[in-house]
Deep mutational scan, measured.
Amino acid sequence: SGVNQQQLQQLMDMGFTREHAMEALLNTSTMEQATEYLLTHP
């Protein structure tokens, strides 16, 4: 699906929903950016 499943699982383990985590990974290129994205786009 174009996203790193390991990163997706890590974000879900942090408490984010699958949909939200996927959106973040699709819009960013690193785990750090994805986390930042999730925190700034709740």
Rank of each mutant, 00 (worst) to 15 (best):
Q5A: 14
A24G: 04
Q5F: 13
Q33S: 05
Q7A: 09
T17F: 07
T40N: 15
H20T: 08
F16H: 06
A21I: 08
N27Y: 09
H20V: 13
E23V: 10
V3T: 08
S29A: 12
E23K: 08
E36S: 05
S1T: 12
M14H: 04
Q10D: 07
T40H: 10
Q6G: 10
M14F: 06
N4S: 11
N27F: 10
T30K: 02
L26A: 10
S1D: 12
A21T: 04
N27A: 12
H20G: 06
T35Y: 15
M12S: 03
T35F: 15
N4K: 09
D13Q: 14
E32S: 06
E23Q: 11
L39R: 11
T28V: 04
T30F: 02
A24P: 00
L11Y: 02
P42C: 13
M12I: 11
T17D: 10
R18Y: 08
M14I: 05
H41L: 14
L25S: 02
Q9F: 11
A34F: 01
Q9C: 09
M12Q: 06
E32M: 06
S29P: 06
H20W: 15
V3S: 06
Q7S: 09
S1I: 13
E36G: 04
Q9S: 09
P42N: 14
D13M: 14
Y37H: 07
F16Y: 13
F16G: 03
T40D: 10
L11F: 05
S1P: 12
E23T: 11
R18G: 04
L26P: 00
Y37M: 05
D13V: 09
R18F: 07
S1E: 12
Q9A: 12
N4F: 13
F16N: 03
L38E: 03
V3M: 08
T28R: 03
A21D: 00
Q9M: 12
F16V: 05
Q10N: 06
Y37W: 15
N27R: 13
E19K: 11
G2V: 13
L25M: 06
L39Y: 14
G2C: 10
H41I: 10
A24N: 00
Q7W: 15
M31Y: 14
L11A: 01
P42M: 15
M31I: 14
L8P: 00
R18E: 06
T17A: 15
Y37E: 04
A24M: 01
L39W: 11
L25H: 01
M12A: 04
E36M: 09
L26K: 09
M12F: 03
E32K: 08
F16K: 01
M14Q: 05
A21Q: 00
T35E: 12
L25Q: 02
T28N: 05
P42T: 14
Q6P: 06
T28W: 04
Q9I: 10
A21V: 15
T40F: 08
M14R: 07
Q33D: 12
L39I: 08
Q6R: 12
N4E: 07
Q6Y: 13
Q6M: 13
T17I: 10
Q33W: 03
G2T: 12
P42G: 14
S29F: 11
S1F: 07
L26N: 07
Q33V: 01
E32F: 04
F16M: 02
L38A: 07
Q9P: 01
N27P: 01
G15K: 03
V3K: 05
T40S: 13
H20K: 13
Q6D: 12
L8S: 01
T40A: 13
L38G: 02
L25D: 00
Q9E: 09
E36P: 05
M31N: 02
T17R: 13
E23L: 11
V3R: 05
Q33M: 06
G15A: 03
A24L: 01
T17W: 07
Q10P: 03
A34G: 01
N27E: 05
L39V: 07
T17N: 13
Q5P: 14
T35W: 15
A24I: 01
E36F: 07
H41D: 09
E36H: 07
Q5G: 09
Q7T: 06
L26S: 07
P42Y: 15
L39Q: 15
M14P: 00
L38P: 06
D13L: 14
Q7K: 07
T35N: 05
N27H: 11
S1Q: 14
D13N: 14
V3N: 06
N4L: 11
G15P: 01
D13G: 14
F16Q: 01
Q10K: 11
G15D: 02
T17G: 12
L39S: 13
Q7R: 08
M31T: 03
Q6C: 08
F16A: 06
G15E: 02
E36W: 09
L11T: 00
L8Y: 03
Q7V: 07
M31P: 04
E19M: 10
S29H: 10
Q5W: 13
G15S: 03
A34R: 00
Y37K: 04
E19R: 11
E19T: 11
V3A: 07
H20A: 14
L11P: 00
M22Y: 10
A24Q: 01
T35D: 02
L26D: 05
T30D: 07
L11K: 00
L39F: 14
L25F: 04
Q9N: 09
S1M: 12
E36C: 15
R18I: 07
D13F: 10
L8H: 03
Y37S: 05
H41S: 08
L8F: 04
D13R: 13
E32G: 05
G15H: 03
V3D: 06
G15R: 02
Q33Y: 04
P42H: 15
Q6F: 13
A34P: 00
M14D: 03
A24R: 01
P42F: 15
L38T: 02
T28F: 09
A34D: 01
L38W: 05
L8N: 00
T40E: 08
G2R: 09
Y37V: 06
M31H: 04
E36D: 08
L25P: 00
H20I: 14
T28Q: 02
